[in-house]
């Protein structure tokens, strides 16, 4: 049995390296993207073998699914002639190659010099897990112990959306009609994807899953709908859409502000030191720690891992 597992892991590692090499070296852009998606799926499998199912879920949803779809969409938007052209084979460049080899060797040395069982912060997380309101340590760290950090990333996403909107006010129309089959598939699949995202978010409290994975699934659903040429109704794209994308960060800031105003001691203490600084302040049931993964805009949370 052990031999089987070692063999499988070895094949997986070799397959990953081979796929990465092929994806980079392949002159055809489309083929490169397909290889990249296959690489993401094998990478998810590797994370499962490393017993990190949270990362595996994120890798499958973001690395393979969402990024793959975005790359394909970008390829479709490239000039058709440019997309049809294959990249010229670049000559071997010794400078960057040497740099890569050095960096790879450094990384390898760093990994080899790690102590086998690093203590990390696992003990602290386990000790405080009861206060966090969830039983999954990864979710506890992401949404509770460093909740400000995670949730304020929504503001970063909002800024990115603002930039995208100001650069590209008019999203491109689809070139060819999607066809009845794709429309039908989306009609069946989109509700399932929304449900799956809600399930991932809910399950994240006690099992692998959580807001990032749920957001990735929602984001993939959105990309799928865009690829099929679905667009929001014009009467929804104005104020309602803007309201929808600001309500999450806005609500979070409002709650945080009310929380800080209600407890002067907590105001002005940064997110990193907050939990340790004030014992009276460690209320895991407080809305600041618990509410926002749901009310924030999860589709946006997907864009950043």
């Amino acid at each position: 049995m052990n031999l089987l597992q070692t063999g499988f892991d070895g094949l997986l590692a070799l397959g990953l390296i081979w796929l990465a090499w092929r994806a980079l070296a392949c002159p055809d852009l489309f083929r490169g993207i397909v290889l990249f998606i296959a690489f993401g799926l094998l990478m998810a499998l590797a994370w499962v073998r490393l017993e990190a199912p949270d990362v595996a879920l994120a890798e499958a949803a973001i690395g393979a699914g969402l990024t793959g779809a975005l790359l394909l969409a970008a390829l479709a938007r490239l000039n058709r002639t440019a997309a049809a052209q294959t990249l010229p084979r670049e000559a071997w460049r010794s400078g960057p190659a040497l740099l890569l080899v050095l960096a790879g060797a450094g990384l390898g040395l760093a990994v080899l010099s790690l102590i086998p069982e690093p203590a990390g912060l696992q003990a602290q997380v386990a000790a405080e897990l009861g206060r966090s309101g969830v039983s999954n340590p990864v979710t506890a760290v992401l949404l509770n112990f460093r909740g400000y950090d995670t949730l304020l990333e929504l503001l970063v996403l909002l800024l990115a959306l603002l930039a995208a909107w100001s650069l590209d006010a008019d999203p491109p129309r689809r070139e060819a009609p999607a066809g009845a089959v794709l429309d039908m598939l989306l009609r069946l699949l989109l509700p399932v994807l929304v449900l799956a995202a809600a399930y991932l978010l809910w399950a994240g409290a006690h099992a692998p899953g959580g807001a990032f994975q749920a957001g990735a699934v929602l984001g993939a659903a959105g990309v799928l709908a865009l690829l099929a040429g679905w667009r929001l109704q014009p009467h929804l794209t104005g104020t309602p859409l803007r309201l929808a994308v600001t309500i999450g960060p806005g609500g979070f800031l409002l709650v945080a502000w009310a929380f800080a105003a209600g407890r002067p001691a907590a105001a002005g203490i940064s997110a990193g030191t907050r939990r340790r600084s004030d014992p009276a302040d460690r209320d895991p049931g407080h809305p600041v720690h618990r509410r926002h993964p749901g009310s924030a805009v999860p589709g946006l949370a997907a864009r950043r891992r």
Binding site: A176, G179, V181, L182, M184, L185, L188, L189, V192
Partner: peptide, 20 residues
């Protein structure tokens, strides 16, 4: 069931793209 749905649709889409 999900793979059935997606697989059949994607096979159709690829074949349709190839014909086009």
């Amino acid at each position: 069931l999900l793979v059935l749905l997606a697989g059949a649709s994607v096979a159709h889409l690829i074949a349709r793209g190839a014909r086009q």
